[in-house]
Design a protein around this nucleic acid. Structure first.
Length: 533
DNA sequence: CGCATTTGACCAGCGC
DNA sequence: GCGCTGGTCAAATGCG
């Protein structure tokens, strides 16, 4: 739906205009008052309908941006918690090999993941498999593949280009939020995004220059290599390859961190990938026996409802995400942006061969998909579809909050209304002070440009404001900008929606740290700015 | 003419 | 050590 949505959204604007013109011209030509009135009426109705449609989309966009912030806060808090507990948490290192975090529903069948590749090795890798399922966006399936490495060989690239995100730069930009990163050496990260796309490359807002093309083993489609040309020394590369099994799916693998201010249209993708990257990379520290990238997720339920939900295998996650120094092979995360098609159920098969066949670091899947788009869109849901994963240690993040949302949706069987969602949210927030504080922090960081020192009461106010905004009171902020979005190419709807100019400010804090010239960044005034003024 | 793309060559890492 | 593979380089080519 991503592409369709964009097409619709941009089309809606054009449609309104053309319809107006058409109406006028019809009136002039036919000079018929009755018909004119009918046309005007139907036109108005049509416009009204489309306006509602647009507003719905804008609301969802706001919601998703808030979600993103929310998860970021969760991750940070979890990471801090892990640091605090790391000295006492050695027993956790003996935990199981498999990890399934089911925050949502996924059609993905892990059994199918073994279809491709060396079966024996893959079986072994299955034991290491960490599967994160987040029912974040229903209409999109995000396939994000993350690879982290700190092998000595990588330093060459880092030294030459000086571009891989240094820990200092992380600290410089984000302060204490990235203390963890400070403890780890510069790492290479890869984020792969799968999306249905008819164009040769995905339009992600950045400028790329192709520097190579190869036929990779296991995929007849050539893999194209691009580097970011926004800044001369930007280290970011991307690989673009069609999926062998479904040519309509484009697999874009991002690697590295931009060392320059990003175009507004690129911030959504950048912040999303960087958030995912930091999520995992932050847990790969040698000094941190416990993986906090996973911990960030595994801690989420505790943050939400205060319960220890289960047998998380933090140490094993570390194993997964902390590859052998001698190995260039990486663990992977998968985000799938293709609509809930069958292909999404065997993500690994669709990944670039080098990753899909990687037995040592099987992909970690962040599946943002659902066959019930509207439901999943609003629900992070609990992992009701993971009962089959008996071979994995499954952790269901069935928080009260999520259950409420999920129940709401299941009962209604219809897309939850914003009102219903608001009600559920309100109830969950009011009954769970932790959730309240977390969301308040997220919202306040949005509204106050990352000022996290707001007290609880203030946070609550802001939270309310945030919810109100999200639930429909400020869609006007985004409308014009949204329609002005770059509609060319193939920008997955998920990112596309996130990249609305109106929310630039929200995502900036999530962006990869910019090592230099941060102050020179020229960005249009954000909502936060407007509010602050 | 300048820039982007194409494409064969080259290099490094890994497995056998 | 050798072959395979992924990734990058750089000269050639194409395009606006």
């Amino acid at each position: 739906m991503s592409v369709e949505t964009m097409a619709k959204m941009s089309g809606s604007a054009r449609g309104l205009e053309t319809r107006k013109k058409r109406t006028i011209s019809i009136c002039l030509e036919e000079d018929c008052c009755v018909q004119e009135n009918d046309e005007l009426k139907s036109g108005k109705e049509e416009m009204g309908g489309e306006r509602e449609e647009n507003e719905e989309r804008l609301k969802m966009k706001d919601y998703q941006s808030l979600q993103l912030r929310f998860f970021d806060i969760l991750r940070r808090e979890a990471a801090e918690k892990v640091i605090a507990d790391s000295s006492n948490s050695h027993d956790e290192t003996e935990e199981p090999e498999l990890l399934s975090l089911c925050l949502g529903r996924s059609p993905r069948d892990p059994k199918k993941e073994t279809r491709i590749g060396n079966t024996a090795k893959h079986k072994e890798s299955e034991d290491l498999e960490a599967c994160l399922t987040l029912g974040l966006d229903s209409n999109c399936e995000l396939s994000m593949e993350m690879v982290s490495d700190q092998s000595p060989g990588e330093t060459k690239e880092a030294d030459i280009e000086g571009t891989w995100q240094s820990n200092k730069s992380v600290k410089a930009k984000n302060g204490e939020d990235h203390e963890i990163s400070e403890q780890i050496p510069a790492k290479k990260s890869r984020v792969s995004v799968r999306a249905r796309c008819d164009t040769p490359t995905m339009s992600d807002g950045c400028q790329w220059r192709k520097y190579g093309q190869k036929i990779a083993k296991g995929n007849p489609c050539p893999r194209a290599y691009y580097r970011c040309t926004v800044a001369p020394a930007c280290p970011v590369r991307k690989q673009v390859q069609r999926c062998a099994e479904d040519m309509s799916i484009l697999i874009t693998t991002y690697e590295g961190t931009h060392n320059h201010p990003l175009p507004v249209s690129a911030t959504a993708m950048a912040s999303t990938t960087s958030a995912a990257a930091s999520m995992l990379l932050s847990g790969s520290s040698t000094s941190q026996p416990v993986d906090n990238s996973f911990a960030s997720f595994t801690n989420a339920p505790r943050l939400l409802n205060g319960q220890n939900l289960g047998p998380f295998d933090l140490s094993r996650s570390k194993e997964v995400f902390f590859p052998n120094r001698d190995s260039p092979l990486f663990p992977t995360i998968t985000l799938d942006l293709t609509s809930g098609s069958s292909s999404s159920t065997h993500v690994n098969n669709l990944l670039p061969s080098s990753f899909a066949l990687n037995p040592r670091f099987p992909p970690t899947s962040l599946s943002f998909c659902s066959k019930e788009p509207n439901i999943q869109q609003a629900v992070w849901g609990n992992g009701v579809l993971n009962n089959e994963r008996t071979h994995m240690r499954s952790v269901e993040l069935g928080t009260q909050f999520q259950q409420q949302l999920h129940q709401n949706c299941l009962q209604n069987q219809a897309p939850p209304s914003q009102e219903a969602l608001a009600e559920t949210l309100t109830r969950a927030i009011s009954t769970d002070p932790r959730l309240r504080s977390v969301i308040a922090a997220a919202v306040s960081s949005i509204v106050g440009q990352g000022s996290t020192n707001v007290n609880q009461a203030r946070g609550g106010e802001i939270l309310e404001l945030g919810l109100n905004l999200k639930l429909g009171e400020h869609s006007q902020f985004a409308s014009s900008n949204l329609l002005a979005q770059n509609g060319k190419g193939c920008l997955p709807g998920y990112f596309n929606r996130l990249s609305s100019n109106s929310y630039t400010g929200n995502f900036m804090p999530l962006q990869p740290p910019v090592p230099f010239s941060v102050s020179k960044r020229k960005v249009p005034p954000t909502i936060s700015d407007q509010i602050n003024h």
